[in-house]
């Protein structure tokens, strides 16, 4: 219990020390802690893409898309595609049906659909991940967010109750499969990549690929771990995940 409190306290302090990626307060329809979380971990490009995700998967998906779009892909195609899928489903939804909360409608997607779309987008640019020049570009984008925070430095902002809970939010959006690596992260890039890696890892079927991801994580090489995780979902996820989601709606 105390270990968990320490972890959320440290995570909160870490996030507190990240610079804000944007200032969305004036337009935010979210409560204060969610707004803070998004300011620190998700860019305005991803938020503005208008991806609709069910509340339980919302923050996980946005951090995942931030890492995938902002760092790996360097464009927001996956976000735009997801917004289009939502829009198509929305057209067939009965908006007048007030028995369903708007955010629980089918046009609000789920985390597996978001990961599937990321995998499909990555497959379209498959060459990117074997081409050194492209990998270098990804690495540069990663390094732009890899400013290490030393919480012991007197210059660092210190833990406080409000941010302890932001730390709890970070813990809650991280897959259990990579939770124990959280205590080692020290930058926004490491944290986002770990969140991405965890959720991707949960969808990888191949044991050998899973093992490659874990080996990189053990070495604290979060960047390589995320690329191995990406390779895993690119191999294991097909468009059938999205087709299945849509056919379940029709069914």
């Amino acid at each position: 219990m105390k270990d968990k409190q320490n972890l959320t306290g440290n995570l909160g302090a870490l996030v507190k020390n990240f610079s804000n990626l944007h200032s969305i307060e004036p337009d935010s329809m979210l409560d204060l802690n969610t707004t803070t979380f998004l300011q620190k971990l998700v860019s305005k490009d991803v938020i503005d893409a208008g991806v609709r995700v069910k509340p339980k998967d919302y923050l996980k998906s946005l951090v995942l898309l931030e890492y995938f779009s902002g760092i790996i892909e360097g464009d927001y195609m996956a976000c735009k595609n997801l917004a289009k899928i939502s829009e198509k489903i929305r057209k067939i939804e009965d908006e007048e049906d007030t028995s369903v909360d708007p955010h629980e409608r089918d046009s609000y997607l789920t985390l597996p659909v978001v990961i599937a779309e990321a995998a499909l987008c990555a497959n379209e640019k498959e060459d990117t991940y074997s081409d050194n020049a492209s990998l270098k570009k990804i690495k540069v984008r990663y390094q732009n967010h890899d400013m290490k925070i030393d919480l012991h430095s007197p210059k660092s902002k210190k833990p406080e109750p409000y941010y302890d809970m932001i730390g709890q939010m970070v813990l809650d959006v991280t897959s259990k499969s990579v939770e124990h690596y959280l205590e080692k992260v020290s930058s926004r890039a490491e944290l986002s990549s770990l969140i991405f890696t965890g959720h991707a890892l949960d969808m990888i079927k191949s044991d050998s690929q899973k093992s490659k991801v874990k080996t990189a994580l053990e070495k604290k090489d979060y960047f390589s771990a995320s690329l191995e995780a990406l390779k895993g979902i690119m191999k294991d996820i097909t468009i059938s995940v999205i087709d299945e989601y849509i056919s379940n709606l029709e069914g």
């Binding site: 204060l32 802690n33 109750p161 409000y162 302890d164 809970m165 932001i166 709890q168 939010m169």
Partner: peptide, 9 residues
């Protein structure tokens, strides 16, 4: 009191 996420302070 202030409630942040899941905790009341």
């Amino acid at each position: 009191m202030i409630k942040v996420y899941t905790t009341e302070y």
